[in-house]
């Protein structure tokens, strides 16, 4: 396989507060290859948004990267100065957030916002930048883009606004797009349009996408690989089909089972008892062990590392080389 585009190793994000340091992301590692869509899923507080924010260098203070490293195309980007980071962010990484309104300046026309972004990062004249803006707006499916350049963000509907944000993220041809809940604020029929758009652009331009969402349905239809976070830690990572249909980690297993589908009506939904521990009260050992139906002594005592079981990997003692499930799988 080619060299990864983005490589995150043992990332830790800390939030020093008056009640002590909260570790929002704890030892997370993953790669994204060129043209790949990596889904990052987890429930609220699992650290998925903080992971994305750490990669683009937009952690809200007092949050900071406390350990680990992030490489983009072989260049280490977690130690860059604000100024250098801004250049990388604009040129190589684009961002799409949940609420399109916060990503657009309500006082400027979308044409001005696009051309300014383009000219900051690409050596183009004003006229060339405008042409490029029209082209990108057309690509993201804005009808008659040349006429819409002089419109303000509020003149677009929610779905169209999200397309404009995607155009803004794409206009300088970045290598990676970080999309944090890009469809959560949208209606289902619009949601499908936006995910289809992301997939098409990714395919056509070879752009990689880190798709952060809580919606497993969106992941199942969009992502190539998926990373499952729990309590700020990576529980499992693997190809989307394997993670959904043949999960390794008991948490992933429980999560997939409790999602209702439109295809069947069970008398009860499977449920994971309890709720995710808060960052202030992380249990020792495996973060999931108090809720885990398969937990044994070791789970409460020692934190499991990520065990490789191609094509996936899971942080669970059941999957240690001598673990129950690993031996079971080896035998079969």
């Amino acid at each position: 396989m080619s060299d990864p585009l983005l490589s995150v190793r043992d990332l830790r994000v800390d939030f020093p507060t008056r009640r002590g340091v909260l570790t929002a992301v704890d030892g997370v590692s993953f790669d994204i290859h060129p043209g790949e869509i990596l889904g990052v899923v987890g429930e609220s507080g699992a650290g998925k948004s903080q992971t994305g924010a750490a990669v683009i260098g937009l952690l809200e203070p007092p949050g900071r990267i406390a350990a680990g490293d992030i490489h983009l195309e072989g260049q280490r980007i977690d130690r860059l100065s604000q100024e250098q980071l801004r250049k990388v962010r604009g040129r190589k990484i684009g961002a799409v957030f949940q609420d399109p309104l916060t990503s657009l300046n309500p006082l400027y026309t979308i044409g001005r916002q696009l051309t300014e972004t383009i000219r900051t990062h690409l050596p183009l004249s004003e006229a060339e930048a405008r042409d490029r803006a029209v082209q990108v707006l057309g690509e993201v499916g804005i009808p008659s883009p040349a006429d819409r350049l002089d419109a303000y963000p509020h003149q677009f509907s929610g779905g169209m606004r999200q397309r404009v944000v995607i155009a803004l993220a794409l206009c300088v041809n970045p290598r990676l797009i970080i999309a944090d809940e890009p469809t959560t604020a949208l209606d289902v029929s619009i949601q499908a349009q936006i995910t289809a758009l992301l997939k098409r652009l990714c395919r056509e331009h070879g752009t990689a996408v880190m798709l952060i969402t809580h919606d497993m349905g969106v992941i199942a239809e969009t992502a190539d690989r998926v990373a499952v976070l729990y309590g700020g830690r990576l529980a499992e990572v693997g190809p989307v089909d394997d993670v959904v249909n043949r999960p390794l980690h008991p948490y992933t297993e429980g999560l997939m089972a409790c999602i209702p589908t439109t295809h069947e009506r069970p008398p009860r939904l499977a449920q994971i008892e309890g709720s995710m521990p808060s960052l202030t009260a992380m249990p020792p050992g495996c973060a999931f062990h108090p809720r885990c139906p398969h937990a044994f002594d070791r789970c409460a005592a020692e934190r499991p590392p990520l065990f490789d079981h191609p094509p996936s990997a899971a942080a669970c003692w059941l999957w240690a080389p001598e673990g129950a499930r690993a031996t079971e799988r080896a035998a079969s």
């Binding site: 779905g159 289902v188 029929s189 499908a192 349009q193 289809a196 497993m216 349905g217 239809e221």
Partner: peptide, 24 residues
């Protein structure tokens, strides 16, 4: 039909769906 078609489904993902155009 549009609603049922567009809802992404975990068990039977349609990775090549053609979403319906237009907005409410």
């Amino acid at each position: 039909r549009l609603l049922i078609e567009t809802v992404p489904d975990l068990r039977a993902p349609d990775r090549d769906r053609k979403p319906m155009a237009g907005e409410v």
